[in-house]
Amino acid sequence: MQSSLFETGVQRIADEQTGPITYQPDVITPELAASWFDALLKGVDWHSGSRMMYERMVEVPRLHCHYAADDPSLPQVLANALDVVKAQVRAPFDSIGLNFYRNEHDSVAPHNDKLHELMPNQPIVLLSLGATRTMVIRRKTPPHLKTELELEAGSLLLMGWNAQLHYDHGIPKLRRPVGPRISVAFRVRPKRNGDE
């Protein structure tokens, strides 16, 4: 799969039929990205986790945190980030998930987001802060073409709902040292029974 760079600075990874998936660097300045990274690193309640894989319980190789967009305890930096994302992407984002990749040993295996946890036809947007990490985006059907995308601080990656049907994405471990990165994911979740 070839990626093309448009005049607007938006890189298209997948078309509307199977995606869309687009990447836009420099949505916020490096200085603002560094400031938001520091604020989130120190200001949110990071959690570790474990999950069943290969018939055994393993530690999830990253830390995480989650907020509802209307949570009264939402850190101001996330409210500001939500404003920036909504100015770029028209969607009623109501869920903000954070992943903290502490070093080159932290990762996320190739996967797609679970469609029952997303509102149909609403995108997922990832804001990257901190060190640049490689995301591998791979087509599920043969010939399984893939793109290795360098997610820089201050960039946005948009994945359409439809992209979860056609592509896996992941952040692999690295063999070289790399600094910490925070990924801020904006989603639209379906209302659950009992939600107002």
Rank of each mutant, 00 (worst) to 15 (best):
Q2F: 15
S3R: 13
G9C: 03
G9A: 05
G9S: 04
Q11A: 08
P20H: 09
Y23S: 02
Q24M: 07
P25H: 13
I28Y: 01
I28M: 04
I28Q: 01
A39P: 07
A39C: 10
H47C: 10
Y54L: 11
V60K: 09
V60L: 15
V60N: 03
P61F: 03
H64Q: 12
A69P: 10
D70Y: 04
P72W: 12
L74N: 03
Q76F: 07
V77L: 06
L78V: 03
N80D: 14
A81I: 07
L82S: 00
D83S: 14
V84M: 13
A87G: 14
R90C: 12
N99H: 08
N99F: 09
R102S: 10
N103G: 04
H105V: 03
H111W: 12
D113S: 06
E117H: 10
E117M: 11
L118G: 01
M119W: 01
G130R: 01
A131L: 09
T132E: 15
T134H: 02
K140D: 02
P143I: 02
P143M: 07
P143Y: 05
K146L: 13
T147C: 13
E150T: 02
L151A: 09
L157Y: 07
W161F: 11
A163E: 07
L165R: 15
H166V: 12
G170F: 01
P172G: 00
R175V: 07
R176Q: 14
V178H: 02
G179N: 07
A185K: 04
R187H: 08
R189F: 02
R189K: 09
R192Q: 15
R192H: 14
R192V: 12
N193M: 08
